[in-house]
Design a protein around this nucleic acid. Structure first.
Lengths: 199, 199
DNA sequence: TGACTTCTTGAACGCACTGTCAAGAAGTCG
DNA sequence: CGACTTCTTGACAGTGCGTTCAAGAAGTCA
């Protein structure tokens, strides 16, 4: 085995998490390396050594974001009845309590933000968001399938189509909310969607 | 009256329209002044003279975009029955046939793109998109109100809430579609939404 | 201890971008 | 025609960015 050298002076995972929050709140383009250096208390060279260039760094943050979100999504939907959990998920777009406890959502859904900023021009980003969307619909469709079987959700539409629609709703809500969230109106709209799923 | 000087060597409206297409397909940050100079065949100084700085120029383009879209939206919904028109609007997010005849949609909805890129950090952009969203929901809610009265659309939810939900759907579809549009899946999801509105 | 490896630091490089400006061109009007 | 105004042109300044790199620091292992 190769000799080990000087150990890293910072926690890589923790640093990625902090970077995630910064990228999340400011976006990819608007977050400069200098911003990261200041916020993370890690010098430029060390960041490049640990994470490669800015794009890689960002995409790693997005992947981490999705990982956490997917865990949240899966565990939330693993209940009966399904609709209350679904409502919760739509209402707090990309809540990610595990990451950001105080602010709720820094700025919408990071996957959605990435879509708007880098897709389709950046092919690697496109892959990441495409896979994320796919997993979202797969997980939600599976939950809806169970709920249809139990009679909780209407079977007047295919679960996949319902799930795709819910993806649009959660991404649309997440995006539109950046312009100022009228909580009551958003909630009423989400309830309208949820009610439409009821058997 | 002041003496008039040398007349402009280009059509301001036409130039704004071309700039709109460029901004639409590349986004605000990714479109440089030089890109505009090359595409519009107008020198930098002239652009600055006619439109002010880049941000003003962009916001003017967004306002024009919305103007055209709103006309399209209003006239499309001025029919009976309403649901087929609504389906058309959701299916072709930001179609804007008047502007872009060949490509359909360069890149989603420009208002949504603006939301993702400049909102809420830029207050003027926030105003523009907020007003646009508001007008969308107002127009759609009015159409739904008529459709509820005529018995075409279910009155199990308030038209405003249905309209807000449709705003989320169209913006979500527009965003998610950047990652690659599965036309059949998108259509099925939209149909699911439309069917849920049926009385 | 000493050879070796890796990490840290911060200055420096090259580049692209927005916005400005002075000189000249092209009109209008008395 | 000649004074005046506005537009055009393209070079320029100023800034901020991502990335690199050489020198030194801090570990590990024989």
């Amino acid at each position: 085995m190769a000799r080990t050298g000087r150990p890293r002076g910072f926690d890589k995972d923790q640093t990625l998490l902090c970077a995630l929050e910064l990228f999340w709140s400011r976006g990819y383009g608007a977050t400069s390396i200098q911003d990261l250096v200041d916020a993370l208390a890690v010098e430029r060279g060390s960041l490049y050594g640990a994470f490669g260039d800015k794009r890689r760094f960002y995409l790693d943050a997005v992947r981490l974001y999705w990982e956490v979100y997917e865990r949240h999504l899966t565990s939330a939907l693993d209940t009966t009845p399904v609709l209350p959990a679904l409502r919760e998920i739509l209402t707090h777009p990309a809540r990610l309590d595990e990451i950001s406890t105080e602010l709720g959502t820094p700025q919408g859904c990071l996957v959605g933000n990435t879509t708007a900023e880098l897709v389709p021009h950046d092919s690697e980003a496109t892959e990441v968001v495409t896979r994320s969307y796919r997993r979202f619909t797969d997980i939600v469709a599976a939950a809806l399938r169970r709920a249809q079987a139990s009679g909780e959700v209407t079977d007047s539409a295919r679960p996949e189509d319902q799930a795709q629609l819910l993806l649009y709703v959660v991404q649309g809500l997440s995006l539109v909310s950046r312009a100022g969230l009228d909580r009551a109106a958003a909630l009423a709209a989400v309830d309208t969607a949820i009610d439409a799923l009821r058997a």
